[in-house]
Design a binder for these strands. Structure first.
Lengths: 237, 237
DNA sequence: ACAAAAGTGTTGTTACTACACCCATGG
DNA sequence: CCATGGGTGTAGTAACAACACTTTTGT
């Protein structure tokens, strides 16, 4: 293994290196549906198509710091409650003009906050994406799959839910993200048993049409915790 | 969002780009334990430390094709039954001499085959890693976590098990990978119920010490299939 | 016959879903 | 007092773990 690795023991970085982009798939539940933040391209290639927010990596910067910087400076988004790496896309044809890899992150914004974004960016339903640029459409769908998986076996709901919420509200968030009906009754018991949520002790006023006032809950932590690490094949007691 | 994204709409890739490495965390069960393939560095930095196999990306090559090429040409490894992207490491200090990102893949080699690897590479127990170069130690551990997770909710065992196997053999594979005791009895029922494995109809001869001959099984497919996608919060019937 | 290894049957448990029913509020 | 929405109680169930027991081989 002569001139191998990491990090290539070769001491000259042989080939012309590709450039490296950083992208963010930002999700938020709005109007009862899962939406993602896209930006409308003003020039070729893919003029008029919608693309993910992002940019390029600066020296001495990690990928994660980079995407946070781009989100803060370009779309003025600072309320990302959870951020995780999704993957790196490398198809040589993914950018028509340049050899460019891109590492995508999944970012989640809690319900209810409305970051002021630039005029050429907007929120789009993930179920009805507009025409997207590059491979960004499939990156968004990969993000949705990741979100759906983790919602069920972790406390990741904290990143889409507001600070405090009623169970009906939380159910709506889960339904929007998962794409199927969720029972508030059972959702409550699952999350309580796991210790993911707790009652705040306060209640919400009932609506104009009456009804029993709902209890307000909150997530016990706003850090990702895997609540059900061994769905099956669990270790012996 | 003027000179944004994808991949940066900016038309000149501004900064000095980092170089990009590709690495493989290759696992195989050998001698009843989970082992990984490492290569002993012959020069600085990290001379004498052990590092992952890999190399750099060639033009017009995807990351996946690249790591397959490096594994085939550098360690003569062509029997990877499963390969998936683990993530991209980007800490600016990860390489002492150069700014280099690395995308790592998880590769799994079935039990029983013994690829002939170069003299300066060897298999090491993941539980007792030697001194590793760069951030490769933590990359190996990240690979093990990924493996452990997927083993329990998917059919990923196919990539560590031989073509056909008895349940005792399969249990040993799972124990090595998971790091805790597994019951052959229950493992059989779990995997049969899910349709992950099936009997071949043949039996193994019993050992010199006697004992009932074991039935031989095989995995129904050798492609990753998520058998238990909704561990909890499953969709309504 | 006996030890060894593999396989089956059975019981208990957990963590869910589904659904009926009860509670608190506004009009 | 009744409609509306929230909450609780209870039964049913799927998917496990644990363990006793049976089967099939070699010596």
């Amino acid at each position: 293994m002569s001139e191998c690795t990491t990090t290539a023991s070769a001491d000259q970085p042989s080939a012309p290196a590709p450039s490296h982009g950083v992208l963010a798939v930002v999700f938020q539940v709005r109007d009862g549906e899962l939406q993602t933040l896209l930006w409308e391209r003003g020039r070729e290639p893919y003029r008029g198509a919608w693309s993910l927010a992002g940019g390029s990596l600066a020296p001495d910067e990690t990928l994660e710091a980079s995407i946070l910087r781009h989100l803060a400076t370009k779309v003025d988004l600072r309320d990302v409650a959870h951020l995780e790496q999704l993957g790196t896309w490398s198809d040589p044809g993914r950018h028509p003009e340049r050899w460019e890899l891109a590492t995508a992150y999944l970012g989640l914004v809690p319900l209810g906050i409305d970051p002021r974004v630039p005029p050429d960016t907007g929120w789009h339903s993930v179920d009805e994406l507009p025409v997207t640029a590059f491979d960004h459409g499939s990156i968004v769908l990969a993000g949705r799959e990741r979100l759906r998986g983790k919602l069920s076996y972790s406390n990741l709901g904290f990143a889409l839910a507001p600070e405090t919420f009623t169970l009906a509200e939380l159910r709506d968030v889960y339904e929007a993200a998962l794409g199927y009906d969720v029972s508030a009754t059972n959702l409550k018991r699952v999350l309580l048993r796991r210790g993911a949520i707790e009652p705040t002790g306060k209640r919400r006023a009932s609506g104009p049409t009456g009804g029993r006032p709902a209890e307000a809950f909150r997530f016990r932590t706003r850090q990702l915790e895997v609540t059900d690490p061994f769905a099956v094949l669990r270790p012996p007691a």
